[in-house]
Amino acid sequence: MKLQRDLSSAARREFLGKLGLAAGCAGTVAAGVGALGAVQEAEAKTDGGASFPTPDYDWTKHRWGYGVDATKCIGCLRCVEACKKENHVAGDAHHFRTWVERYVYLEGEDKPRIDSQQDPVNIAASGSEKEYRFANRYKDAKVEKAFFVPKLCNHCTHPACVQVCPTGATYKTKDGVVLIDHTYCIGCQYCVQACPYGARFFNDVEHVTDKCTWCYHRITKGLQPACVEICPVGARVFGDLNDKQSPISLFIRNNRVQVLKPETGNAPNVYYVGIDKEVN
């Protein structure tokens, strides 16, 4: 009797085990089929009628690129202020989606002196952390060479920040822009560490990472990024690399361009003209 009960118990266990296994297999298959369906659905979406991400803008038709002509930049910092207003970035001297660096080579010195708008001397010259101005601090110095370099997110083809994000909160769009999904960002700042260009910063109010989006909300409406729009001297250039007559295509074709830190393998998409090897 006891033996029989043991046997039936064993059989029941075996049966339940097999059932579980079958359920597991079925679940896996179902998930696989479901995923396949989702992929097919996605493909159908990109191929057919409705465009993404907006009804008037199809991201498969564009590949954005950015150019900086440092020989034109006058260091007026209108781009920095415009970017902050356009993207509602904190009005202080510590958070910037784009910034401008000044490189000054003094006579008898090997290395350039580098400052940006957030340097305390420059903040003192502007009189406010919300306004930016380069102080004329080298007016009486013996300057051998000096120039300004605007900087921003490079929207790399192989972005290290996207690779390290544990939650899929940052990603590369089909039109070549690296974006941040603020609802998925957990604020771990791994991406801030991963970016070789220092383009990302932490938004302490919302506890998320932030950075330049090339004004994705503007370019998808046919506008230029705010910094490009505002630049009074045309030092910033933006356009579609797919269009051979776009400002950025002409900029790359008509100039000897370079990118910052190509050795990192990120393949950046901001092209520079007129910078020294000290700029990186």
């Binding site: 989702a38 991400p53 803008y57 207003k85």
Partner: peptide, 25 residues
């Protein structure tokens, strides 16, 4: 929308694109 286009939430793209431009040209 998470795996719709890749390892991210596809709906975040139109959300970002929907922001209103501040500078008007």
């Amino acid at each position: 929308s998470f795996y719709e286009y890749g390892h991210y939430r596809a709906n975040s793209v139109p959300e970002i694109a929907a922001q209103a431009p501040v500078f008007q040209t």
